Deep mutational scan, measured.
Amino acid sequence: SPEEIKAKALDLLNKKLHRANKFGQDQADIDSLQRQINRVEKFGVDLNSKLAEELGLV
């Protein structure tokens, strides 16, 4: 269901964000992850996106 997909995506992105902060990645990478999280919260996951591929939806 779209809600489950959204939850999985947010979980994955939050893990990536945590790792980025923990290991001191570029601020641009961290900002990009934050924008992705905001986009998923607002609009859900686009099944044509790279994120959908990472989640194994495509």
Rank of each mutant, 00 (worst) to 15 (best):
S1T: 13
S1E: 07
S1D: 12
S1V: 08
S1I: 08
P2F: 15
P2G: 09
P2Y: 14
P2D: 13
P2N: 13
P2M: 14
P2I: 11
P2R: 11
E3R: 06
E3W: 06
E3T: 06
E3K: 08
E3M: 08
E4V: 08
E4F: 09
E4H: 09
E4C: 13
I5W: 14
I5F: 10
I5V: 09
K6M: 05
K6Q: 05
K6E: 03
K6D: 02
K6S: 04
A7H: 08
A7F: 11
A7R: 13
A7K: 15
A7P: 02
A7W: 09
K8W: 12
K8L: 13
K8G: 03
K8C: 07
K8S: 05
K8F: 06
A9D: 00
A9H: 01
A9F: 05
A9Q: 01
L10N: 01
L10T: 01
L10I: 09
L10Y: 01
D11K: 12
D11M: 11
D11E: 15
L12S: 03
L12E: 04
L12Y: 14
L12P: 00
L12G: 01
L13A: 00
L13Q: 00
L13E: 00
L13Y: 00
L13M: 02
L13R: 00
L13P: 00
N14D: 04
N14T: 10
N14I: 13
N14P: 00
K15N: 05
K15Q: 12
K15M: 11
K16C: 10
K16G: 02
K16H: 04
L17I: 06
L17C: 03
L17R: 01
H18S: 12
H18M: 13
H18L: 13
H18K: 13
H18Y: 13
H18R: 13
R19L: 15
R19Q: 14
R19S: 11
R19G: 07
A20E: 03
A20R: 00
A20L: 11
A20C: 11
A20T: 03
A20Q: 04
N21M: 15
N21K: 15
N21Y: 14
N21A: 09
K22N: 07
K22H: 11
K22Y: 09
K22S: 10
K22T: 12
F23G: 08
F23H: 11
F23D: 13
G24D: 06
G24E: 05
Q25K: 13
Q25E: 11
D26K: 10
D26P: 15
D26W: 06
D26H: 09
Q27Y: 06
Q27N: 07
Q27W: 10
Q27A: 10
Q27R: 10
Q27V: 07
Q27P: 10
A28N: 10
A28L: 08
A28T: 10
D29F: 15
D29L: 15
D29E: 15
D29T: 15
I30F: 03
I30S: 03
I30Q: 03
I30W: 03
I30R: 06
I30P: 01
I30V: 10
D31K: 08
D31G: 04
D31C: 08
D31N: 07
D31R: 08
D31E: 13
D31S: 08
D31Y: 04
S32Y: 15
S32W: 13
S32D: 13
S32C: 15
S32L: 14
L33R: 00
L33H: 00
L33S: 00
Q34W: 08
Q34F: 07
Q34T: 11
Q34A: 06
Q34P: 01
Q34M: 15
Q34Y: 11
Q34I: 15
R35P: 02
R35S: 13
R35C: 14
R35G: 06
Q36I: 13
Q36A: 09
Q36V: 07
Q36L: 15
Q36W: 09
I37Y: 05
I37F: 04
I37K: 04
I37D: 01
I37H: 02
I37Q: 02
I37L: 06
N38S: 12
N38W: 14
N38V: 12
N38H: 11
N38C: 10
R39C: 15
R39E: 15
R39F: 15
R39V: 09
R39P: 00
V40C: 02
V40W: 03
V40S: 01
V40G: 00
E41V: 10
E41M: 11
E41T: 11
E41H: 11
E41P: 00
E41K: 13
E41C: 10
K42L: 13
K42W: 06
K42F: 05
K42C: 08
F43W: 12
F43P: 00
F43A: 03
F43R: 03
G44C: 01
G44S: 02
G44M: 01
G44N: 02
G44L: 02
V45C: 03
V45T: 01
V45Y: 02
V45P: 02
V45S: 01
D46G: 06
D46H: 06
D46F: 06
L47S: 05
L47F: 08
L47V: 07
L47I: 11
L47D: 04
N48F: 10
N48A: 10
N48P: 04
N48W: 07
N48K: 10
S49E: 04
S49F: 02
S49P: 02
K50I: 07
K50F: 09
K50V: 10
K50D: 09
L51W: 06
L51E: 03
L51A: 02
L51F: 07
A52V: 03
A52P: 02
A52M: 08
E53A: 12
E53C: 10
E53N: 07
E53M: 14
E53P: 01
E53H: 11
E53L: 14
E54D: 06
E54Q: 06
E54F: 09
E54P: 00
E54R: 04
E54S: 06
E54W: 14
E54M: 09
L55E: 01
L55W: 03
L55R: 00
L55D: 01
L55T: 02
G56I: 03
G56W: 05
G56Y: 04
L57E: 03
L57S: 03
L57W: 07
L57D: 02
L57H: 04
V58W: 10
V58M: 11
V58A: 09
V58N: 11
V58C: 07
V58T: 14
V58P: 07
